[in-house]
Simulated scan of single mutants.
Amino acid sequence: MYIKKILWAVALIGLIICGIIAYNIYGAMFSPNTAFNNEEAYIFVPSDASYNDVREQLEPLLVDIDGFDALAKQKKYTSNIKAGKFAIRKGMNNNDIINSIRSRNIPIKISFNNQNSIEALAGRISKQIEADSGSLVNAMRDALFLSENGFNEATALGMYLPNSYEFFWNTNAEKFRDKMLSEYKRFWNDARVKKAQELNLSPNEVITLASIVHEESKKRDEQPRVAGVYLNRLRIGMPLQADPTLKFAAYQLPEYKNTVIRRVLNVHKTIDSPYNTYINKGLPPGLIAMPDLSAIRAVLNAEKHSYLYFAADAERFGYHKFAKTLSQHNNNARQYQRYLSSQGIRK
């Protein structure tokens, strides 16, 4: 009888212990464990992250980090870290959190425009995805990649069309570059390639001309007319005489570093550079800036007219006065030069 009581007591204690263990396991798995008030919090897990790196980000977000540790070890997450951006919703339990950070990498939207060099673009992108600017520059300037895809150092920036795109945060430099090539090819569909051919231009040349148009005019309603002027000049073998190309050429020289040219002078027209479109006919070797898509479309759908000249309009800021004859243009140009002088703008 005494032995039976002992056995019953042992069994009862065992049940109690099992119950406590089951309760603790249930609590570790299914009790809410978030410590923040927002609806969601995010963690960014690098490609080479250890569990301690993840834990460091999670600790301020959780009520009980030790309970999370125990379940993460049990579910083998500690030895199977996944890179990416992950969301933790308010009220999530440890089981939900582990499932989220193990398998629910969230795509992000990245965007860029007006990045006027590969280095500037790389810097912009590196602030939005995991890849650092150095690896991005190396990938984007890779000589073999460029030659295999019809680009060179001068035209490389033209592959990156300013817009918003979806990526995973942990995208590396090569994958970013390769996806942007796919987006470039998607943009240059058969219809756009045909329009370029009708202008006797390649896609690279369209983007080069668009970069000049964009630097001349940010007004979308005027860009097709500006593009028409340059196409007229190309058609008759007249130099483009585009002031933005002079500025670009000047900025490559040491004496113009960290300066802003507000007024193009005759001295700029003598700069020895393939980008000097006053002394070199045709298009320059590559784009001078990253054009907006509106400028590319403006070239492909340029206004058909007889204008050969244009000068900035002092009365309509950002717009231009167009002319068919040199004498009319010189008159428009003098008006604008007088305006610059009245504003004290000498260079």
Score class of each variant (00 low, 15 high):
48 D>W: 06
48 D>M: 11
50 S>A: 13
50 S>P: 01
51 Y>F: 15
52 N>P: 02
53 D>E: 13
53 D>M: 08
54 V>N: 01
54 V>A: 03
54 V>G: 03
56 E>Q: 14
57 Q>R: 07
59 E>K: 12
59 E>Q: 13
60 P>L: 04
61 L>P: 03
61 L>V: 06
62 L>S: 05
62 L>H: 05
63 V>S: 02
63 V>N: 10
68 F>K: 01
68 F>Y: 06
69 D>Q: 02
70 A>P: 01
70 A>E: 01
71 L>M: 12
71 L>T: 07
74 Q>E: 14
76 K>W: 07
77 Y>M: 11
77 Y>S: 08
78 T>E: 09
79 S>Y: 11
80 N>P: 02
81 I>R: 04
82 K>N: 15
83 A>R: 08
85 K>F: 06
86 F>D: 06
88 I>V: 15
89 R>L: 11
90 K>S: 10
91 G>V: 05
92 M>N: 14
93 N>K: 02
93 N>E: 04
94 N>A: 03
94 N>R: 04
94 N>Y: 04
94 N>G: 08
94 N>V: 03
95 N>C: 00
95 N>W: 14
97 I>C: 05
97 I>Y: 01
97 I>N: 03
98 I>A: 10
100 S>L: 13
101 I>T: 10
104 R>Y: 06
105 N>I: 08
106 I>V: 15
106 I>Y: 08
107 P>C: 09
108 I>C: 08
110 I>A: 05
111 S>C: 09
111 S>F: 10
111 S>N: 12
112 F>D: 12
113 N>T: 11
113 N>A: 13
114 N>H: 12
